[in-house]
Design a binder for these strands. Structure first.
Length: 347
DNA sequence: AACTCGTGGGC
DNA sequence: TGCCCAAGAGT
């Protein structure tokens, strides 16, 4: 066991964060393990997503579907709508695929091996290692953004990400202990989240400060270095919000592939860098809302012109269907469109 | 290998 | 305000 992992485990025993899917280190040391279903669900939700945002969704999902069998039996639409607002919707589609695979091919038990876990939909190198370590206490090395940052600083690695990834992974693997690998994995991530933070690391209270090369060199706050990213373009589109006389709104489910795949949305144009050609989903007295809806995705900005109209009970749309509106079942950009449209329909 | 894929919070 | 970032995976 390395000095670093020993120091980190001692720090974790006193400073472990509590989360709904975790068991405390005292129980882990006594040989207990958390529910693999809980660990898998939380790890998928935590992909590129903050702990604060995940907590409420985790509690909602485990209340609706307490077991992997229950989740596997859920309708696709119920899962997609429960996931609405959390983002990266391919995760929700793969979540269902994975639950159904675990039930159909593994008797409802998650594989207790790195290779078995890696074969599951939506489970990549990080998540497989996290489940192996945390749920099964196997000596797998987790490498997420926290671990990359901690390793870059411990070893004062100046190579920028993503090329530095293999170097940092090798460092992380060397430090992974054979004893308590699950607690160790959570300890590194807690350290990265609370002390070895991106902007102003709290080196003065860090348990690893004595052996940290970046601390010695004064470079901690500059690491890890990252390759510059290309500028984000702006795209433009039209969204059609039509309310029927009974209050229902015209919505359509987006195709499984691509942006917001499988989610409900407003009929509209495609999103391109040039203004779209209007293609209303039905004939009506369309009016442009006074405000446009703005939203920024990972790799482009979006500006949507919102068209609103009212329709009679007998309206016959070319796409989608009229359904009672539950804004919480929509992805955020579609909620923004609704907010803009609602103001226009009122006035 | 590089690109796609959401969202909300912090500074 | 705009940019960065957060327990990445799939293609």
């Amino acid at each position: 066991m390395s000095v670093e992992s020993d120091l980190l485990l001692h720090w974790y025993d006193q400073n472990a964060r509590q989360m709904p899917w975790r068991i405390p280190p005292a129980l882990s040391k006594a040989g207990q393990r958390p529910d693999p279903y809980h660990i898998w669900l939380s790890e998928v939700m935590l992909q590129q997503t903050t702990v604060a945002a995940v907590k409420a969704y985790f509690l909602k999902f485990t209340a609706l579907w307490p077991t992997v069998e229950a989740l596997a039996a859920a309708p696709d639409s119920a899962v997609m709508e429960a996931w609405a607002g959390l983002g990266y919707y391919a995760r929700a589609r793969n979540l269902l695929k994975c639950a159904r695979t675990v039930v159909a091919d593994h008797g409802g038990r998650f594989p207790a091996s790195l290779e078995g876990l890696l074969a599951l939909p939506g489970v990549g190198p990080y998540t497989a290692a996290a489940i192996a370590a945390i749920a099964f206490d196997l000596p797998a090395t987790v490498v997420d953004g926290n671990v990359e940052r901690v390793m870059a600083r411990l070893f004062d690695e100046e190579t920028p990400l993503p090329p530095a990834k293999p170097i940092l992974t090798a460092h992380a693997a060397r430090l992974t202990p054979q004893q308590r690998p699950g607690d160790y994995a959570q300890a590194v991530m807690d350290l990265g989240a609370t002390i070895c933070t991106p902007k102003s690391p709290a080196c003065v209270i860090c348990p690893l400060t004595a052996g940290c090369l970046a601390r010695a060199a004064g470079t901690a706050h500059l690491l890890p270095r990252k390759l510059p990213k290309k500028p984000q373009p702006t795209r433009f589109g039209l969204a059609y919000v039509v309310q029927r006389a009974d209050g229902a709104f015209l919505l359509e489910r987006r195709p499984d592939k691509g942006l917001l795949g499988g989610m409900l949305g407003w009929p509209g144009s495609g999103w391109a860098e040039t203004p779209p050609i209007p293609t209303p989903p039905l004939q009506a007295d369309w009016q442009a809302a006074p405000d446009i809806a703005r939203h920024t995705f990972t790799h482009f900005h979006l500006e949507l012109t919102v068209m609103v109209a009212r329709a009679p009970l007998g309206a016959n749309p070319e796409v989608g269907s009229f359904i009672p509106l539950d804004p919480t079942a929509l992805p955020t950009v579609m909620r923004k469109v609704h907010a803009v449209a609602a103001a226009a329909l009122q006035g």
